[in-house]
Write a protein that binds this DNA or RNA. Structure first.
Lengths: 116, 116
DNA sequence: TGCATATTCAACGATTTCGTTAAATATTGC
DNA sequence: GCAATATTTAACGAAATCGTTGAATATGCA
């Protein structure tokens, strides 16, 4: 499944939504728990989550009365690649490079990425 | 100079603006020439360029009565790094890696980039 | 000086975005 | 069934976004 650069970049342009994505990096979370640290109504957070879901950046699965939010970083792939087409982002790409190698090594076996 | 993720992602969320950035990948351009392929008023394009400039994604320099627009891909650096923090976007990072090496080599002498 | 070219500014309207509050809808568990 | 919990929906308002048109403003050139 692929999502438009429009919706992905637009979703990422809001600081609340970026903060939510960072939180989900740690673990899946229920809507209420996502909302907790923000000084904003639950309804507002619910809408932010809907926007993230539309962009494909998260998925939501309802178990019982709780809706769990799960990060889907693959949705950033196209956007990330698009940006990479513009160049090299000089000094810090050394970090990116290290990270690159790191992941390459950790993947050693070359397990196939979960299909999307 | 660093620009906010808010403004960068927001600037990138519009297809017209992304198209403009792609055009500028080829060469610097005057405002009128940027506008030419679009089915939109010159004033509208002028505003899009202002948004790109505010985000740091382009710079504009007036020479005579012509304002030249220049791509500033470095402004994407922070945003790109932020995204990389979410993962590795597997297959295509090989391309990114090749590009990385390529630039490393082409920089061999280490010419200082024009200061900004 | 005066006209053409290059670009922006100002005012406007339609639409979207971001937040609010209050009410609706599930779902759980006694 | 009833109360508590989890989440969304609806209606609203303020502000931002995206485009338009028409008038300014600079600059180049004969």
């Amino acid at each position: 499944m692929t999502f438009s650069l429009d919706t992905v970049f637009s979703a990422l342009s809001d600081p609340t939504r970026r903060a939510i994505l960072s939180m989900l990096l740690e673990d899946d979370m229920a809507v209420t728990d996502v909302a907790e640290p923000f000084d904003m109504s639950l309804a507002a957070i619910s809408k932010h989550l809907a926007i993230l879901a539309t962009a494909g950046l998260i998925t939501q699965e309802k178990r019982g009365r709780v809706k769990w939010c799960k990060l889907e970083p693959d949705a950033m792939r196209d956007a990330s690649i698009w940006m990479q087409g513009f160049g090299q982002f000089e000094p810090v790409n050394l970090d990116a490079f290290e990270k690159f190698l790191e992941t390459e090594l950790s993947h050693e076996g070359g397990e196939p990425p979960a299909g999307d």
